[in-house]
Design a protein around this nucleic acid. Structure first.
Lengths: 128, 128
DNA sequence: TTGCTCCTCACGTCACGTGAGGTGGC
DNA sequence: TTGCTCCTCACGTCACGTGAGGTGGC
């Protein structure tokens, strides 16, 4: 398999826009398992692909535990049926949570706006 | 001063809707300093008032460091001028940050919506 | 011998939650 | 003596950042 590009940790990290520490962290947590040459990690295209999925999940706000659950199911369920159902459930939970967060942020912004106006009024009041 | 209600940690915590641990935590971080009777903490009305300010700041998303900065300035600047200026600056920073967070949440919700639709389409495709 | 990259601990971050183990006064 | 409340450590949480100290091969 001379065509498969095996890469070092620094190359992969740069390509993915993360630090080597991040790759080691996901490995410690069982999300990826690159090969070793001696003690040095060597990443295959498959490893990099998995990392892209992982980072996508992270960007969408899933925890490492949830992402690992998806990947484990993906490995165990090639038909993707169970995986899709879990995915839809988790995604809807996440959307619920985000919708609430959004409402909370809107309320907070209004309160902060209030505070600015009050503070500026007070500053004007003290002006000579 | 027989009229000042001095309260124990459990009472104050319950009244404020927090745990005793939270009160001890803020004390360790220099935000409040209740009296002691032996080793037991005793809270005055002033302590409780400060805690209400602190919790308001927390709810608005300020860090403990920022809240302490406000309070220190409040104690050092009875005219409130410098304090108001700092407050307005920090509040506007916070609003900026929240506005960005809100936009990010909206994008994420759309992406998640996409994912649900794709997953459901895939589930229908496998149906017998 | 000097750099360079890689490695493995392991502490720090943020705001507390959660025991563990101990004490004073009704 | 038995409860109850209070106390002081100190580890755990989440996803890494950031040294510290060491190693292999050009």
């Amino acid at each position: 398999v001379p065509d498969t590009p095996h890469q070092g940790i620094q190359e992969v990290a740069t390509a993915l826009g993360v630090t080597p520490r991040t790759l080691r962290f996901y490995e410690d947590n069982g999300l990826i398992s690159p090969q070793r040459v001696g003690s040095t990690r060597v990443y295959s295209r498959r490893d990099v692909g998995r990392m892209q999925l992982i980072l996508r999940g992270k960007k969408l706000g899933f925890t490492i535990r949830e992402i690992r659950e998806f990947l484990d199911l993906y490995d165990a369920d090639p038909g993707h049926r169970e995986q899709m159902e879990l995915l839809v459930a988790r995604v809807q939970e996440r959307m619920d949570s985000l919708t609430k967060q959004k409402a909370a942020i809107e309320e907070t912004i209004e309160e902060l706006d209030q505070i600015v106006h009050e503070a500026q009024a007070r500053l004007r009041a003290v002006e000579d």
